[in-house]
Design a protein around this nucleic acid. Structure first.
Lengths: 340, 340
DNA sequence: AAGACATGAGAAAACGTTTTCTCATGTTGA
DNA sequence: TCAACATGAGAAAACGTTTTCTCATGTCTT
């Protein structure tokens, strides 16, 4: 306890060895439950280790084991509302394994992307997770052929890689089925730009469930577009919908506001359902928004465990995995109880 | 070029030395512009290094230099809209210095906080930045007495530490002065809970600028409260305000919606100004919101450079630093041109 | 009683760098 | 012509671990 520390200021294995009166090899084996030694010695070393607060230097350890217990998260979405839950899931899953996460926002900039990837490789990350905001675009940096495994989440992946995404068809089906179950018959889908593959997937699932004559209105991802769509629909006077499935929560917010301004009651006259479950928005609409949740945190968790498995060389089948969405029921659709 | 690589799969300094026909010491000195050697040799080694793609292993380097070129970002705010811009600023400032950032979300959980801090220290981070969502609360983990420097941003710091925050009084003054400059005379401040020190600071600055009789309404940080406040004010029929300064953009959104529903024109009858410049919200209000921007990205940049300075042992004066806010003029106040 | 074997623990090498020291050779000055 | 010195480059130690050998001692077998 009174012996002096190494000059670095941190307690090293040598300090501990000196304190315990054994060699560093013995200390290492004691702490890692390796090798042969008297149980009493092992226990004593462990006790002294906690007493003097020894914690092994991860740099030194990583140098030898070629495992740094570090992964990189590359993101496009200036940590918007998609990447954030994904990150939370990753971190939550990996902290239990002693893995820390480098966050790198690359902003659609190839040069910045390369800088970050190089920096991470220099730091010997065990793997990389790439995330974006849409599944049909890839990050502006080539991650194929890297010396570490890469997992893609919510962004387009390389051919033989592991890619995770939310199941758009299933999510849209969930929403449409819910509207029908509540007795809504004249359904409309107000959504984002048609060039998003997710938009097309959801629209197809909507049409399948709602009937081919149910119309789909493509636009942009904004509140304003929700307003405009309602203005267009209600200018027709006839064939007005009684159930509206929106492509995201912002559109839904615009739709609900526009309906209120027209004196149309939500959910009495029309049920409205959103997508994303962006809570800060969904909870503040009047009435609070029933919406589809993509389980992004769970997606992040899966991505974290996946990249860890790859880093440890455990067998993992490549390909695209679609994770199910869930319905979050609030008050914008009427009805009660939980979704099936 | 034809010589085989080390078994690790990565190019080491030994591979490079063999390729160049020199010793590893010479290579190291060549690449770091250290020591003495023929200019021609240095150039040749550098050329071969890029040819075979040599990049020094940061773990090995860090082991020796006790600089890992890594910092940790500890956050409370499950990466909400405060921490995010701060993070972006940190990352942007540090990537140029080759520093990568570990992101750790600790969710008000002391145990999780300790786990993350320990993991970061094990990985020999050069410093830690702690961020939160309010300046009068500290993170649930003790960062005093750590073997690395700590900088606090938007959260309460330890006594002799460096702490960065936005200048609440200046920001509120900016907003109030803007309303007055536009000719508004009957001002109201609708804001959040009075137990926030930022709320009190801003309210004090508002009163100073607007006159002591200008009223301040304390509430919560939600759209709903904005609605309620307008309902209360307009139930009085007399002494109606013509300028409303809101404590955040969500309240402002609620205020604007409530005014529209009452047939009060914004900005013709009443000017409304928000706080935070949460773009996705501020741009979608009708009309788009004029609001105070706390320059959080800049704050993050400063925090990054600060922790780097401390890590390198450069002298840095401790204490609380307040960074100025700026006014972002959109259409909710009327008037034109830029703030003074 | 003597070889075979189990046990406990230390010595040394290894990981990939950087840095200090040493040394051979060439060059200058008187 | 010889000492003093500058130059270019390599050898070796160091950083803090883990892991593989090695070895002394003690305990069985027969």
């Amino acid at each position: 306890m009174t012996t002096q520390r190494a000059k670095s200021g941190r307690v090293t294995i040598h300090d501990l060895a000196r304190e315990a009166g054994v060699s560093v090899s013995t200390v290492s084996k004691a702490l890692n439950d390796n090798g042969r030694m008297a149980a009493e010695t092992r226990a004593r070393i462990k006790r002294i280790a906690t007493e003097i607060g020894f914690r092994p230097n991860a740099l030194a350890r990583g140098l030898l084991s070629s495992r740094s217990f570090t992964i990189g998260l590359l993101t496009n979405d200036t940590y918007g509302r998609f990447t954030l839950p994904v990150m939370a899931g990753i971190s939550e899953a990996l902290v239990d394994h002693g893995v820390s996460v480098f966050l790198c926002a690359i902003e659609d900039d190839p040069a910045l992307g390369k800088v970050h990837v190089d920096a991470m490789l220099d730091k010997q990350v065990d793997g990389i997770i790439a995330t974006g905001k849409r599944i049909d675009r890839s990050l502006p940096v080539d991650l194929a052929g890297l010396p570490v495994p890469v997992v893609y989440a919510f962004t387009a992946g390389a051919p033989e890689s592991v890619t995770l995404m939310a199941d758009d068809a299933q999510g849209a089906g969930l929403a449409t089925a819910w509207l029908k179950k509540l007795g809504r018959r004249r359904l409309v889908h107000i959504t984002g730009p048609e060039d998003f593959v997710s938009v097309r997937e959801r629209a197809a699932a909507f049409s399948r469930e709602a009937g081919e004559d149910a119309s789909v209105l493509y636009g942009v991802w904004s509140e304003r577009w929700g307003h405009e769509a309602i203005a267009d629909l209600w200018s027709a006077e006839e064939g007005l919908p009684d159930g509206i499935f929106c492509g995201n929560d912002q559109i839904a917010r615009g739709v609900i506001d526009a309906l209120r301004e027209r004196g149309v009651k939500v959910p009495d006259d029309v049920s409205v359902i959103g997508y994303d479950n962006w809570e800060i928005l969904a909870e503040q609409t009047r009435p609070p928004l029933t919406t589809v949740d993509m389980n992004l945190k769970e997606l992040g968790r899966e991505a974290g465990l996946m990249v860890l498995a790859l880093a440890e060389g455990r067998p993992t089948e490549p390909g695209l995995r679609k994770l199910p969405c869930k319905l979050v029921v609030r008050h914008s659709c009427g009805g009660a109880g939980r979704p099936e």
